[in-house]
Nucleic acid binder design. Structure first.
Ligand SMILES: NC(=O)c1ccc[n+]([C@@H]2O[C@H](COP(=O)([O-])OP(=O)(O)OC[C@H]3O[C@@H](n4cnc5c(N)ncnc54)[C@H](O)[C@@H]3O)[C@@H](O)[C@H]2O)c1
Ligand SMILES: NC(=O)c1ccc[n+]([C@@H]2O[C@H](COP(=O)([O-])OP(=O)(O)OC[C@H]3O[C@@H](n4cnc5c(N)ncnc54)[C@H](O)[C@@H]3O)[C@@H](O)[C@H]2O)c1
Lengths: 215, 215
DNA sequence: ACATCTTTGTGACAATTTTCACGACATAAG
DNA sequence: CTTATGTCGTGAAAATTGTCACAAAGATGT
């Protein structure tokens, strides 16, 4: 399952982005695409795109570009788009509710299968077709789920994290400001919206000529 | 205003994070802190922290560490925590509503001053104390505002972006999947939640031993 | 068939970022 | 005063990431 040929992390982070735009091209009926065109669409230098693709071998044809259908098929396999990864969401508050209402499933190999909250008014209801269980049932319900979205209050973050890991979760998308502690082998991506906003303002003031920056 | 001594971008992105944790320490009444302690709290290598701080001169004392109050004061000035930057939010849907309900102002030099939407049912109301105007009033109301949070549907993103820039906005926090095109001098940070989730899953499967990763 | 045009894949290089490791100084204790 | 311990700031090295620029391969047009 896990490749031994190590793709650079920076490349790996761009793959889902490439996938989405290639999929768009396919839907639009385009048959081929050059690294230059793709570059304008995703705002990544064309040389970087060619380099990224080249880690997977020769996907294109010189003088022609890339065949959209072939590329799409390739990325579908590489990103495991066929098997849906079940995801749990913990904390159905402002943010959590927004995510449940959003259809992450479109164009995506992930699906939020269940949500948990401590509020008895929320437990037993559904949002966006996702059932909400009581947090006490976490260990019991989380059997197949390996990935979790964490949108609980700051004070609960570490505690819930430990329960998630005990239940077999190996990946967490953490929206709380807490920098949670996890054992080796558990992957955490922090998305810290306050930091993002402050960081944007800092760059606006101190780097006035630059333009684009991945979050 | 803008420094000529260039702080590395990677460092600049960590500054708001440092600021928040130093502030926490101050609230807890701690008088001093070492790079090692801070490292455990923010999950950044201690050498990296020392290096980051050193771009601003010698903030610490050898054999002692950093004085929390001094550090806090220093970061407050560096991150312009005194002057609040006004921000506008465009698109009061699922995500936009969550952001309006969240108090970004806490511990933060930014404040969402106004919001815009096309839906007449939302126009004229308030969420979290923030007034919602009609999108037609954008140009008229946006006089002081230089930063915007974009949470409109994909199809509207580029169009609204252009109107924002015409109105003087120089920084955009973009939550739509569109990679918007902007002229030089306008800063865009993309936060692409579908990509983040797919990327997490990819890393879980292909880099099973790594642990932590900034979004 | 041939000349011309396109675009890939990549060696070489440049830039950025992280990490190592140690001298220098601070503090505390005896 | 001396020693033991702790911690910074930083030169140097390593690791990672991005970019340039071009030969090679194939596409296109006449
Ligand atoms: N809303 C935003 O725009 C925003 C922005 C930045 C960061 N955040 C962070 O995201 C997190 C969630 O924010 P929010 O605005 O949605 O908060 P919220 O208070 O609206 O939602 C938190 C939810 O978690 C539930 N909860 C509380 N304790 C729980 C527990 N032990 N187990 C399960 N559920 C529990 C609550 O019932 C509530 O529904 C917070 O950590 C916040 O700091 C939110
Ligand atoms: N909700 C999520 O969890 C989520 C996740 C990933 C990405 N996104 C992206 O974030 C964006 C917003 O998502 P959402 O779920 O909040 O969508 P939404 O449909 O709930 O909200 C969009 C809002 O924008 C308003 N709007 C439409 N046209 C407008 C215009 N021309 N000017 C001003 N306002 C206008 C609508 O009235 C609506 O209130 C979308 O681009 C979506 O792809 C959302």
């Amino acid at each position: 399952m896990s490749e031994q040929n190590k793709i650079p992390q920076a490349t790996a982070k761009r793959l889902p982005l490439y996938y989405r735009f290639i999929n768009n091209l396919h839907i639009q009926g385009k048959l081929r695409v050059s690294s230059k065109e793709l570059s304008e669409a995703v705002k990544v230098d064309s040389a970087t795109i060619r380099r990224d693709f080249s880690y997977f071998g020769a996907l294109g044809k010189k003088g022609y570009g890339y065949n959209v259908e072939y590329l799409l098929e390739f990325f579908r396999k590489t990103l495991d788009q066929d098997e849906k990864t079940p995801v749990a969401l913990i904390g159905v508050g402002n943010l959590g509710t927004a995510f449940l209402n959003y259809n992450f499933t479109k164009n995506n190999n992930t699906k939020i299968e269940m949500a948990f909250d401590a509020d008895p008014n929320k437990v037993g209801t559904e949002i966006g077709g996702v059932p909400i269980y009581h947090i006490d049932e976490l260990e019991q319900k989380l059997s197949e789920v390996q990935a979790a979205i964490l949108t609980v209050p700051l004070a609960e973050a570490q505690n819930i994290t430990e329960r998630l890991i005990k239940s077999g979760v190996t990946g967490i998308l953490n929206f709380t400001p807490a920098r949670i502690t996890v054992p080796e082998g558990v992957r955490v991506h922090h998305i810290d919206l306050s930091v993002e906003l402050q960081s944007l303002v800092y760059f606006m003031k101190h780097y006035p000529l630059d333009t684009d920056e991945e979050a």
